[in-house]
């Protein structure tokens, strides 16, 4: 993994990284990927992937409103709100 790969991934993941950190991340991530690539020692053709250990199916919830308005409580510790809105730098479309 090169610094440029790290920059691309950091951009996708929205993580600010200094140019000076890119090299170190690149070498650490390369080491981790080298560990991960030990998987390739095994031929897994035809093996069904396992996403959940218990292999159960989704339970369904009755269509009932159970949640009261808790806006004040939820916004008490929010970084920036006004008139009930969460505020962010201007969204341009």
């Amino acid at each position: 993994m090169q610094s440029s790969d790290v920059a691309r991934i950091a951009h996708l993941a929205k993580l600010a990284t200094d140019a000076s950190e890119l090299e170190q991340y690149a070498s650490e991530l390369t080491a981790i990927l080298t560990l991960v690539e030990q998987m390739n020692r095994l031929d897994t053709a035809g093996v069904e992937p396992l996403a959940h250990p218990l292999e159960l199916t989704q339970r369904l919830r009755p269509d009932v409103v159970t949640e009261p308005d808790q806006r004040e409580g939820f916004q008490r510790h929010a970084p920036l709100t006004e008139d009930g809105f969460y505020l962010v730098p201007r969204v341009i479309e």
């Binding site: 650490e28 998987m39 992937p49």
Partner: peptide, 27 residues
């Protein structure tokens, strides 16, 4: 580091080689 590794293994072109492979080994 973990967010970056995770973002990488799910990104276009790498999903099968990493994520699916790992889920197969999981089975």
């Amino acid at each position: 580091r973990r967010i970056m590794i995770g973002t990488y293994v799910l990104s276009a072109g790498y999903y099968d080689a990493y994520y699916l492979k790992a889920q197969q080994i999981r089975r």
